Amino acid sequence: MNVTEAVSSRRSIRAFLDTPVDRDVLERVLTMAQRAPSGGNTQPWHGVVLTGEPLARLISRVADDLPKGTAAHAPEYDIYPKGLDGAYESRRRGVGEDMYASLAIPREDRMARLMWFARNFQAFGAPVLMLVHTPRYMGPPQWSDVGMWLQTIMLLLRGEGLDSCPQEAWAIYSRQIREVVAIPDDHIFFCGLAIGHRDPDAVVNSFPVARAPLEEAVRWEGWQ
């Protein structure tokens, strides 16, 4: 698979098979991903790769607090900026509605939507979950570096025939995560990355995800 094929076939997978993932493959991917760019070669990314009993323990711990609703949430950063509006908010809401439409869950069925959202905290059935963190004093440029590292990992996973789902949703349970996974106190928890094999029969893995046209993102100057 070349880079273009990896980019075009990568998507956030929300239904995984229970097929195990070979650690050797993950080590190969993560070793190569160390080549991701970072300002000044700081490489500010850190990850904890969970499977088996440690992953089950984390899922169980978060499940204990799911019934508490937002009272149990303790994100260490704003997942979306306050005041998100315009095209940015429209895209965010749009992909959610498209996903629920693919699942035949109407807007008024709030309980069904909440139950589906809770699947985030089962890593959508993936056998592997990587938890990503970075030192608290890192600024926006270093967070950008972490994003480039994650994108590199996701594309390399496609090259190995694997899939993933970057999950900022895990951030709302950062306190519970820290209870069962050793993340340094002077680091901020960022996100999870579910890793495994996509379920090819799950409709949630195939609904069209709209992207903005190039002219909304890029302006050209000095070109004939």
Rank of each mutant, 00 (worst) to 15 (best):
V3M: 11
E5P: 01
V7A: 14
S9G: 01
R11G: 03
S12T: 15
T19W: 04
P20I: 14
P20C: 15
R23M: 08
D24C: 12
A33E: 01
S38F: 08
H46V: 08
H46P: 00
V48L: 14
P54V: 15
L55T: 05
I59S: 08
I59P: 00
T70K: 15
E76H: 06
D78V: 09
D85P: 00
D85R: 14
G86W: 05
S90T: 15
I105P: 00
R107F: 06
F117L: 10
A118H: 05
N120F: 03
Q122C: 07
P127N: 11
P135A: 15
M138A: 10
P141Y: 06
Q142N: 09
W143V: 13
G147N: 03
T152W: 01
I153M: 11
M154V: 12
L155R: 07
L155Y: 05
G159D: 02
L162N: 06
D163P: 01
C165S: 08
E168G: 04
A169V: 12
W170T: 12
A171Y: 01
P184R: 05
D185W: 01
D186C: 09
H187D: 02
F189E: 02
F190Y: 05
L193Q: 02
D199Q: 10
V209E: 03
P213M: 04
E216F: 04
A217E: 05
V218Y: 02
V218S: 08
